[in-house]
């Protein structure tokens, strides 16, 4: 049995200090198993019950999921997740890659520019949200400043309009994440073989084609890593919404995570919130799909 052998070998290899990495690993494993998977299973169970403020163990089947699907606020939240995911990720990726390419063309003060573009990532999401809320506020923000300067027809009230408010979130998340994409893509670009560039120059291929058809396609794995990182950002963007719009106007910028938290704590509806959490788990699990695809490709 490998199980019984492992500690013995660990003891003989280790110096006298008594440090036991295997024990540390077991502790970690237990914590993950109990806290993470335990809570996960319990949430799954609760989603099938009629729990309200206090967990109840009376199974009602998929009633909570049925109510969830019938709730307009939940549907809005899911649509918003898709909008934020699609536009936010595409935007960050495009802008970040563009910045990386520009920096890669040997600009002056590269270090300074890199820091500037990366800086938003170092800010807390709450501060990001608040800053953008002030900027986009029609009474105190950009709109009032430009109108004050004499451009009286200027109109920027994204936050006030339920149809556009979600795009304010998209803008804020692009602003935040582009720097991250830039730094990763820059590292990728720097890793491109100089021979490839020599060949490109020899062939006289225009620069844009060189990037679009040769360099960027060779960075597929780097791009995929960016996408996975950004997706994780989107699913957990709870704090950005709280700071920027609090889910409003109405519930037009609600996200699934906010829906679940509101129902757990504000609405004393553990059953419905658990059902929402289970669906969110489904979203998170789907994030793993591109990751698994890359792994399979890497192995092949």
């Amino acid at each position: 049995m490998t199980r019984s052998k492992a500690p013995a070998r660990g003891l003989s290899d280790m110096p006298e200090s008594g440090f036991r990495p295997d024990l540390v690993a077991i502790g970690f494993f237990l914590v993950v198993a109990l806290v993470f998977y335990g809570s996960l299973l319990w949430t799954g169970y609760l989603s099938l019950t009629n729990s309200r403020l206090i967990p109840s163990y009376e199974i009602v089947g998929f009633d909570q999921f049925a109510r969830l699907v019938a709730t307009p606020r939940w549907r809005t939240a899911c649509v918003n997740l898709v909008i934020l995911g699609a536009f936010g990720i595409a935007g960050s990726l495009a802008l970040g890659t563009l910045l990386a390419i520009l920096l890669d063309r040997d600009v002056r003060a590269e270090g300074l520019l890199r820091s500037i573009f990366l800086h938003p990532l170092a800010l807390s999401l709450v501060i990001t949200g608040l800053a953008w809320r002030w900027l986009l506020d029609p009474v105190t923000g950009i709109q009032s400043v430009l109108r004050g300067l004499g451009w009286s027809s200027f109109h920027l009230d994204w936050l006030a309009d339920p149809d556009t408010a979600i795009y304010a979130l998209v803008v804020a998340s692009i602003w935040r994440s582009s720097g991250l994409v830039m730094i990763i893509m820059l590292a990728g670009l720097r890793g491109v073989d100089t021979d490839i560039w020599k060949a490109i120059r020899l062939e006289g291929i225009p620069l844009w084609r060189a990037y679009a058809q040769i360099v960027l396609p060779s960075l597929k794995l780097t791009i995929a890593s960016c996408i996975i990182l950004l997706m994780a950002d989107v699913v957990r963007s709870y704090d950005l919404v709280i700071a920027l719009t609090k889910g409003g106007p109405g519930f037009s910028t609600d996200l699934p995570a906010k829906f679940a938290v509101d129902h757990f704590f504000g609405r004393a509806n553990i059953g419905l919130a658990s059902a929402a959490s289970v669906v969110i788990l489904g979203f998170v699990a789907s994030l793993l799909v591109p990751y698994l695809l890359i792994q399979r490709k890497g192995r092949a």
């Binding site: 037009s252 609405r267 509806n269």
Partner: peptide, 19 residues
């Protein structure tokens, strides 16, 4: 009203106001 019921009313009124 129960907090769940009040929550649903609040959602509806909020949606009516914005939409």
């Amino acid at each position: 009203l129960s907090s769940d019921q009040m929550g649903q009313v609040t959602d509806l009124v909020g949606q009516f106001w914005t939409d």
